[in-house]
């Protein structure tokens, strides 16, 4: 087990190297430069001024040298400084330890995604099971249609409709941002309540859209399991259907969900820019989008590298989870 882990971790190093090299080259291939925000169609910029700016950011060097410089820092776990005009370190823009949690983009995105992921699993698993056991009934059809509506409906549109209803017409919920103006002066539970009110709509919209995939996985996985011989045996023994499903079939049907959880790990730090913009949530999606649009290379590379590491770790976790859950795999 330990050798296996070490081997897997070592294998990650060349993979990660390859990912960063590819990302670096691709983002530099995109037309434009980080200095464009100053120089583009700005008549006040002379060629000398542009060269000065490019030199400041090392953009005059060949791309492979730039990659070398970046790599030299990254092995020391230094993500460098953002090219945006405040030139803050990349990590500080993602996770500033001096700021409260709600002002750290990574935390905000992680919190919202985690809550919505938990809600999705809490709903999708029972829905998947029940529609598998009631296959082709009216209930199955209604749930299937509902989750697919959630999947197909444009998020921004649903979000705007809900904001109009709950924010403007009913005045029940705030519609933008994470906290109210008087947040700082609220007592602890007041803060939680304020935050919760701000999060209801974003989490509802993101969870509603995510239900389809997970409930469908759960349904098909359950369907496969209840066709197995041991389930027939359990039924033949005369066990009540409840017990057959929830004690015997359920555990085995959950196995593919482990993979699903593993695959969701990198998604936890990735935010959707449309979603974050609509709700005014200062998360990773906005940051990444802005960084790409302004060709802020260190920032883009920082987010991509963290994403890559999490993806690889997520895969590893899924494999370990599988080993723990399924003796057949452990044996090999």
């Amino acid at each position: 087990m330990l050798t296996y882990l070490v081997k897997r971790l070592l294998e990650m190093i060349p993979t990660l190297f390859g990912i960063t090299l590819l990302s670096f080259v691709i983002i530099h291939l995109a037309p434009g430069k980080p200095t464009d925000i100053f120089t583009e169609l700005n008549p006040k910029i002379t060629p000398e001024a542009r060269e000065r700016l490019e030199k400041l950011y090392n953009l005059d060097k060949p791309i492979i040298v730039q990659y070398g410089l970046w790599l030299g820092k990254i092995v020391k776990l230094d993500f460098g400084e953002s090219f945006s005009s405040d030139r803050r370190p990349v990590m500080q823009r993602i996770w500033d330890p001096k700021k409260p949690l709600l002002e750290r983009r990574l935390f905000v995105t992680f919190m919202i995604n985690l809550i919505s992921m938990v809600i999705i699993f809490l709903i999708a698993i029972p829905v998947g099971i029940s529609s598998a056991t009631r296959r082709n009934t009216l209930y199955d059809k209604i749930t299937t249609t509902t989750v697919f509506i959630g999947f197909a409906i444009p998020h921004f549109w649903l979000a705007l409709l809900l904001m109009l209803l709950f924010g403007v017409t009913l005045h029940w919920l705030p519609i933008s941002g994470l906290t109210s103006m008087n947040y700082a002066s609220l007592p602890f539970w007041g803060k939680i309540w304020d935050l919760a009110k701000h999060l209801v709509l974003p989490i509802f919209v993101s969870a509603f859209g995510g239900l389809a995939a997970d409930s469908r996985y759960m349904r098909s996985s359950m369907l496969e399991v209840i066709r197995q011989d041991y389930v027939t045996v359990a039924r033949a023994k005369g066990l009540p259907e409840r017990e057959v499903i929830y004690r015997h079939a359920f555990r085995n049907a959950l196995l593919p969900m482990i993979t699903l959880v593993g695959l969701s790990v990198p998604g936890l730090i990735g935010g959707s820019v449309i979603f974050e913009n609509i709700f005014g949530i200062p998360g990773m999606g906005q940051l990444f989008f802005q960084s790409v649009m302004t060709r802020d290379y260190p920032m883009v590379m920082g987010v991509l590298t963290i994403g890559a590491i999490l993806t690889l770790l997520g895969n590893l976790l899924a494999d370990i989870g599988y080993m723990l859950a399924d003796p057949r795999i452990r044996a090999r």
Partner: peptide
């Protein structure tokens, strides 16, 4: 003077109506 960041103009118009 508070400069509230609302990246979406449709949202901003709704927020204006709520008085925020």
């Amino acid at each position: 003077y508070i400069y509230k960041i609302i990246p979406d103009s449709a949202t901003m118009f709704l927020v204006l109506q709520t008085g925020e």
